[in-house]
Nucleic acid binder design. Sequence first.
DNA 1: TTGTAGGCGTTATCAC
DNA 2: GTGATAACGCCTACAA
Lengths: 332, 332
Amino acid sequence: MAVSRAERKKPPTSLDVARLAGVSQSTVSYVLTGSRPISEATRARVEDAIDKLGYHPNSGARTLRSQRSGVIGLMVPEADSDDGVLMVFIGAIAREAQRHGYDILLVTAQEGARGIRRVVRTGVCEALILMELDRQDERVAPVIESGLPFVTIGKPEEFPQGSVVDLDFEMLGRMVVARAVEEGCDRLLLFGSPDRKRRRNDVSRFLAGVEDSAGECELEVVLDHEALSGVPERALRLTLPNQRTALFGITGVRQALFAMAATGALVDETRLLIALSGEDLVDVSPLLAAVPQIDPRRIEVSEIAVAELVRLLQIEGAGPRITLVEPRWVEG
Amino acid sequence: MAVSRAERKKPPTSLDVARLAGVSQSTVSYVLTGSRPISEATRARVEDAIDKLGYHPNSGARTLRSQRSGVIGLMVPEADSDDGVLMVFIGAIAREAQRHGYDILLVTAQEGARGIRRVVRTGVCEALILMELDRQDERVAPVIESGLPFVTIGKPEEFPQGSVVDLDFEMLGRMVVARAVEEGCDRLLLFGSPDRKRRRNDVSRFLAGVEDSAGECELEVVLDHEALSGVPERALRLTLPNQRTALFGITGVRQALFAMAATGALVDETRLLIALSGEDLVDVSPLLAAVPQIDPRRIEVSEIAVAELVRLLQIEGAGPRITLVEPRWVEG
DNA sequence: TTGTAGGCGTTATCAC
DNA sequence: GTGATAACGCCTACAA
């Protein structure tokens, strides 16, 4: 039987700590916030008292007074087929935020612009991280309007008023082309979800990088943004006796792995799968081991996003900036 | 350039609303909380003013005064290979919580018991949802000690002081056995992650259900909790000419699907894959279509967990209870 | 049916 | 280097 709200014993306040330490309430506050010098002796007494009582400052009161909730709102997209990837970001963001003394509050995409307005106006969140923005996203307006510092993960079409952190997709394109050429491929087959291609601009940036560098060499680029399940068959069909085709996709790596493994090798004289690997693919790591892999660095992107937000929050006058993280080849 | 904290214009308070509506501050409050009858006329004026100003009650002040933060803490496990599944739960929980007027704050497993103590003592969370508890979990103690209402998703060994919501794994076991027999199978091969089997007790409950009902029929049960990748080969090896083997696993369904599809049919005279399907498997739905599927009802489990927590929060004297959700066959 | 006023626990501005 | 004290914005018991 749960203890009722009323009979639950009240946690100690800073006044209790002050009394036990024989100092004033404000001194306790200063010890905690460090916003004014305190003698070693009294600091020790106060900290003792804090431990003894198991005191934690009341979040509501602190927020009310200081206008800082210590909470960062994380706008999460509706779960789609890429759930595993999403969880990697969310986990890393939450851990990094906690390391900086902030908590993460979920704001679902479902709530839309109204949800943003709510968490902002009520003062629950003092900053925001936005993930997977569409090209035109109704949720951007209330964020800007709120004036709160924010970071978007994923580079939007236009430079917004907040900071941006993302993988360098253009470089990714150049890396894939370079590797394909090195490995003696004549053709590069790019697969992926057609829906994603339409809605998000990371695909366009990637393609820009590909075309940019493919132009300089003899590599023929083929776009295959039809259903993922047909990837290996189409790849085989497109393959000619004396040619070698490299395959790559930003999404659908797992499906491609399985499908190709089922109909033949991931790597042989006629084809070479290059994988955008990631923490969500641990379950297929044996398969992955056979192919060249690029790390999309999702953990780093997440951590940088949080660090960047903390910078905007804590450094007065800090301006927004763009950080593109370089993809990396995974060493065999 | 972000607007600095100081120059950001302050949101309207209930006093602003009161002035605009020509009533007292308390009347505004009563309109909002509904804790006292208000005449239609003044209610209308107040609501008008609220809209006009875009007023939202300040969360810090409300929390301080009422001891309710409107925030539910969600203890999320470290991301593992089952990330997609996790995201289904989290998304559904966040959406359902919002429908009830609560927000979800993430508490990572990494923070451990100390994290629980922190969010509880500071008053950020007024209730908790615990996911994926280990058999012995250090985080349970501080939760109970806090006296806050809580719900665990996943039935623990012992009945805790909070409510429990989970899939009925015993019934799942009986359903799998019954179907295998109906389909003319002589043998049931159970695969899954050995680690999970050791740490979590849903597997034991499932096995109890299986053994319970397998005893009554001629079905031979084989446990295969070695590496998932070997599943289809072992299944084939174990298969005898005149026999039919049913295959089932609580985890690793996607891997099994791909692996079996690669080495032969999912369903033929010698074998029958039964899949624990779920929202995280959309990417392989074409494969799934060919086999009998059981819905693990993760969305329902999530929604019930939230509803149950809301009940504990809002109904004075409500006691904890156990809710087991029945698995369901997915209709072809 | 509505208004008045006190206090929730902190932070930060005054004083000393 | 430290202490008193006034808000922060809301809820609700008490008055009218």
